[in-house]
Design a protein around this nucleic acid. Structure first.
Length: 420
RNA sequence: GUGGGUGUAGCUCAGUUGGUUAGAGCGCCGGAUUGUGGAUCCGGAGGUCGCGGGUUCGAAACCCGUCAUCCACCCCA
């Protein structure tokens, strides 16, 4: 048996309503905030991701699905959505458009990681990118959209954490101070963190090992190394969140894994989601457009993990989905079978959802299938009825049956369907 | 890439210190009802015990390997 690829899941019809519910909410909220959908390719040239995400990040170093095109060009299945969106923004000269460019997208992302709870090799994100506004209100607007969407879905026990990463130069000034401190504490840190001191010292602050957390409690803080500009910008973001009553918690340890973030960074996490508890995250990325060859452009955005949202979504949401097929055609016998098949088509053309199981040859079998499919009505049509020029419409709930004249089939059946 | 758990019927799982024909519940099919679904009763079908070796008179069980899957590390949505 040929099986699906490790870490790549099928979404079966039973689960589709949950996803529709999430996607419709996301669309509705994004539209309310003035974001418009953008659809970008699932693969791009490899250098786009290497340059934007950062050459030394885990994503680029070991998690990308990269392959050669026929002419030798290196292509990569997108591991995230921001890079492609920014590429499209530059390529289509969207900076020349006088209104802010605010986009949202849905789609699969690909990272070659070991699968676990809430982590897949092909997973799906909903993301937004707000391009062109260097104003704290743009950050607030994006965070607010994120929070309102998640609240609207009724996802339980979420917390929004926020931090100020400052500018690139702020971090460059801070880094040696942190490294100096960590080297003194080195023996008390876990082996991972000992390695991180060289590779990614900011990550040590985000380590989950209690010993490491204790050792870094007294470490110099990035917040103390920030420029006045970065500091005041962040203050205004927080004031904006306060003004519109979006609840947040400051977390000076919060670090993002992608290189392009600066200033505002944030993450929404959930309890009861396993070890991978981040539902959505994002931040400001003012330098990225320029890095990729576009004009200097301020930008802020976030991405949400749809699988993780689906895991958190209460069961009740799926149960409230209305039945979508209403009529079952039970045509049997030599003539009933043929006429039933024609009536099936007639109903569909006149906008009625109708089904039949062509394997069933007896009335009993037909009714059983009608029941399983949850159809409200069954149209019974055997040779006896054909001879009389009628059919029997059975209400599956009340069990009452009505004779329908085949000569005016649609006119007679419509009133029953309307009041169901 | 590293570690741990789990692989037995369509699904969820039993299976005694290794013992002869591998079970249950649910589901499925049929009958009771020659043209009336769900409920009930009766009957039936369905299994390379993940795969490959090994130990043994005998392996679903023990050993080795391998694959799949889940969880965790790492990292992230």
């Amino acid at each position: 048996m040929i099986k699906g690829i490790k870490g790549v899941k099928d979404l079966l019809p039973e689960e589709a309503p949950r996803w529709h519910f999430i996607e419709e909410s996301a669309r509705r909220w994004a539209t309310r905030y003035g974001f418009r959908e953008i659809r970008i390719p699932i693969f791009e040239v490899t250098t786009l991701f290497a340059r934007s995400i950062g050459a030394s990040t885990d994503i680029v170093e070991k998690e990308m699905y990269t392959f050669q095109d026929r002419d030798g060009t290196s292509l990569t299945l997108r591991p995230e959505g921001t890079a492609g969106t920014v590429r499209a923004y530059i390529e289509h000269n969207r900076a020349a458009i006088p209104v802010p460019q605010k986009y949202y997208y849905f789609g699969p992302m690909f990272r070659h990681e070991r699968p676990q709870a809430g982590r897949l090799r092909q997973f799906h994100q909903f993301g937004v990118e707000s391009l062109g506004m260097a104003d704290p209100r743009a950050d607030v607007e994006v965070i607010s959209l994120l929070w309102r969407l998640l609240s609207d879905l009724g996802l339980p026990s979420l917390t929004l954490e926020i931090n100020n990463l400052g500018s690139t130069s702020d971090r460059e000034a801070y880094r040696p101070r942190l490294v100096e401190y960590l080297k003194i504490q080195v023996t008390g840190l876990c082996t991972n963190c000992q390695r991180r001191i060289e590779t990614n010292p900011l990550r040590v602050l985000d380590c989950k090992v209690p010993e490491c957390r204790a050792r870094t409690e007294a470490a110099p803080r990035l917040g103390d190394s920030l420029s006045d500009a970065a500091r005041s910008y962040f203050t205004r973001v927080l004031a904006g969140l306060d003004a519109i009553k979006v609840p947040y918690a400051l977390n000076h340890r919060l670090v993002r894994g992608l290189d392009y973030y600066n200033l505002t960074t944030f993450e929404v996490s959930a309890t009861n989601l396993g070890a991978q508890n981040a539902v959505g995250a994002g931040g400001r990325y003012d330098g990225l457009v320029e890095t990729l060859g576009g004009p200097q452009t301020s930008a802020v955005g976030f991405a949400l993990g749809l699988e993780r949202m689906a895991m958190l979504l209460p069961e009740s949401v799926t149960n409230s989905v209305p039945q979508d097929v209403v009529v079952y055609i039970a045509g049997f016998g030599s003539q009933g079978t043929d006429i039933g098949f024609k009536l099936l088509e007639e109903l569909r053309i006149s906008q009625v959802s109708a089904v039949s199981d062509f394997r069933s040859t007896t009335l009993k079998a037909h009714l059983r299938q009608a029941d399983r499919l949850g159809c409200r009505f069954t149209l019974i049509l055997g040779d006896d009825e054909v001879v009389k020029g009628t059919a029997v419409l059975r209400d599956m709930v009340s069990k009452t049956q009505y004779d329908i004249q085949l000569s005016s089939f649609l006119q007679q059946i419509k009133p029953f369907l309307a009041c169901s």
